[in-house]
Simulated assay, not measured.
Amino acid sequence: MKRRQIAAIDVGTSKICTVMADTENGDLRILGVGVVASRGMQKGMVVNLNEAKEAIRESVSMAERTAGYKLKSALIGVTGKHINSKNNRGVISITRNDHLVRQSDLQRAIDIASSITMPQDRKVLHIIPRNYSVDGQEGVSNPVGMHGFRLDVETHIITAASNSIENLTKCIRAAGVEIDDLVFNPLASAEAALTDEEREKGVILADIGGGTTDIAAFKGNSIYHTSVLPIAGSQVTHDISVGLGIPFEMADDIKQRYSSVIPGECNDASFVESGHTFSYPDLCEIVRMRVEELLRLTILELPSDDYSKMVPSGLVITGGTANLPGIAELGSEVLRIPVRVGTPPNLFGVSDILNDPACTNVVGMLLWSINNRDASKSHPANEESAKGGFISRMFGNPKN
């Protein structure tokens, strides 16, 4: 297989990360990385086009200098409280004399399952077939070639606000980069942070970034729930700023250098920063209260009260906020389920900076590109697809 170049851009609330790589036979090699402080973004959405465009351009230029070539196109991560999702079912009859399920039957069933009524201001971001059943036989992963009279398919459909997507794509193109595909952030993070066993048994992933917490739940090796919470790391920083009476920038620095939520670790010590003395226990208590609330809200997003049975593999936390010392221990204590911090896999090339939970999403987008290349051809978010919806597929080949 010929080596090909791929790239991804994570346009977050706190940082913008561009990664350029190449791949051959599924092996990924990182060629360039550009990380800059985010500007013009709030809770995953563009609030200042010019500032966001310039920050993206800086990130891209930094990655290009390391890689040694110009970035033409990339996958783009998408998040924001405007993201919605639902599961929908499609049913068809197999009326041919041989009653064998063909690829065209899968397409027809997916088309029916994808037929949902949406306001004009929303677009489809992903249509993901979750599972199939043939004549009532559940758990069929690939029904093509099976004999049956009825084919059912359940899809997970993720939609986004058109204006938010268009503003983001405008910024990317203004920075000189075309868009290969749009990927909902937690789907990408799951590619990098979850194991096959976790996906099969049942697991919930929480990508806690600066402005949003992106959630994806898996069961039976398929996705069944996604959502976005408009609270994340910046709210922790805000609480520190208010609680200690200091500027937001100082609070963010203190959070990164001194914060901990390890149960029972906080003592009576104090620390000095910029000529001011702060109580370590006070800082830890502020951070712990907000993080505990965030963890509880994450679990409440699941469509079931008995979450311990729904996700026996527990919770995997990733994103920048996952770097808080003790967050996994706190999660296990509060939620009484297994909790671990998810990090990207080790990669070849100039990848040292990517060995961090904050980079799980952007690495996941590269893996998404590799893992889904043969399964489907994704529609880029161009003018043509803007009329009919932005669709990326995990399985099959549903039409727009």
Rank of each mutant, 00 (worst) to 15 (best):
P129L: 06
V46F: 08
H82Y: 12
D121N: 07
K123R: 15
G90H: 13
S114M: 12
A109D: 10
V78A: 10
V124N: 05
T66M: 14
M41S: 12
Q107K: 14
Y132T: 12
L49S: 07
R108N: 11
I127G: 09
S73T: 12
Q42F: 14
L49V: 13
I128Q: 05
N88H: 14
K123G: 06
A109H: 05
R130P: 04
V91D: 04
A74I: 09
Y132R: 02
T95N: 06
V124Q: 09
I76P: 10
I116H: 12
K86T: 08
K123F: 01
N87A: 09
M41C: 11
L100A: 01
M118T: 03
D135A: 01
Q120E: 04
I116A: 11
V101C: 02
G80L: 12
D105P: 15
H99Q: 12
S115E: 13
R122F: 12
K86M: 15
K72W: 04
G136A: 03
Q42G: 07
R102V: 05
S61N: 11
D105E: 06
L75R: 08
I128H: 06
G68S: 04
L71H: 01
R108D: 07
V60M: 05
R89E: 13
G80W: 15
D111Y: 07
I56E: 07
T79S: 15
V46Q: 07
R108C: 03
I83M: 12
